[in-house]
Simulated assay, not measured.
Amino acid sequence: MEAIKGKYLTTVNRLTARNKAIIRRNAKSLAAGFAALSFVNPDDDFQFVDSIATVQRTAQPTSPFTKALDERLTPLRVTAIGTTAPDINQAKPDGTKLSLKSLRGKYVLVDFWASWCGPCRGENPNVVKAYNQYKDKGKGFTVFSVSLDDDKDRWTKAIAADGLAWPNHVSDLQKWNSAAAAAYGVQSIPASFLLDPNGKIIGKNLRGPALQEKLAEVLK
């Protein structure tokens, strides 16, 4: 299975690189705006898509694709690599409030998920493994889980079922109307943001071995 996944990711990365090269060569064209929206994920490659949007604002100022690019990128600018992560202050399952800022001093994975999200539940074992391996290393590592559930019982049962042992679980139980999701520009889950001890974003959507590799790099 891992071999198949590896081949798939290699193919996806090759196609993305090819698409980016074509878009870059034709950055002033109307088609470039459409292609940047359709074939490159700004969550994973914000700087590239933002650079195309900058060119498009001058070359195609009235294009609907230019407008759509700006609308898509505006919330992502708040969570670009190197920026300070917006604070989140929501209720834990017991009703008490927990602030993301209170975890400063450690590396923190802000993890958006939900009990009803199959891919999220599938990724949880990787997050649990990373937490257990790195929670006591260096400056420490923890997870700040933000649920997009709207049912408290399902949320808490999923926490227990998946063995999410860290104490930092919050939700406003508003599903896609979550204030935290809006602040981070989250439009699909799972979505995650790795913060350094000062609260700056140093990684986004690090899944599977990518998360462990990044933690091994920063928690030497």
Rank of each mutant, 00 (worst) to 15 (best):
K152L: 14
R104T: 04
N41K: 13
A31P: 00
I201L: 08
A183V: 05
K135L: 06
C120T: 03
S63P: 05
G105E: 10
A32V: 02
R24C: 01
K200T: 13
W176L: 07
A36M: 02
P64K: 06
D196C: 06
S171T: 09
V143A: 00
P42D: 00
A158S: 15
H169M: 04
P167H: 08
Q90I: 09
Q90N: 12
S178R: 00
L215E: 06
Q133A: 15
D196R: 05
S147H: 00
K97P: 01
V143P: 00
L195W: 03
N198M: 08
S171C: 08
S178G: 12
A181W: 02
T62Y: 12
Q133G: 01
I22E: 07
D153R: 14
N205T: 11
A183N: 13
W176M: 08
P75S: 09
K135D: 05
K200A: 13
A183T: 03
D70E: 15
P167N: 04
T16A: 12
L30R: 11
A161W: 04
N89L: 14
L9M: 15
R24S: 12
P197D: 11
E123C: 09
E213N: 13
R14Y: 07
I201R: 11
T74W: 00
K214E: 14
R24W: 12
R25W: 01
D94A: 02
S63Y: 07
F144A: 00
Q56Y: 04
S29K: 07
K175V: 03
L148V: 09
S102H: 01
F112T: 00
T74N: 10
L37R: 11
I52C: 05
I88F: 00
D162Y: 12
L98M: 15
G138K: 13
I88N: 00
P64Q: 12
E71P: 01
S145E: 11
N168I: 03
N13H: 10
K175C: 08
A91W: 01
A91V: 04
R57C: 03
D87M: 03
K7S: 15
N177T: 02
D87T: 09
V12D: 10
N89S: 15
A31W: 14
G95L: 06
P86F: 03
S99N: 10
T10H: 13
K157F: 02
T16V: 15
S178F: 00
K157N: 12
A165E: 14
H169W: 05
K220W: 03
G33C: 04
I23N: 04
K5M: 13
L164W: 01
F193E: 07
T96V: 02
P93W: 01
G105R: 10
R121H: 12
I81L: 15
A165M: 14
A182V: 06
L215Q: 10
D70T: 00
N126M: 10
L103Q: 04
A68N: 12
R57Y: 09
A181S: 14
K28E: 15
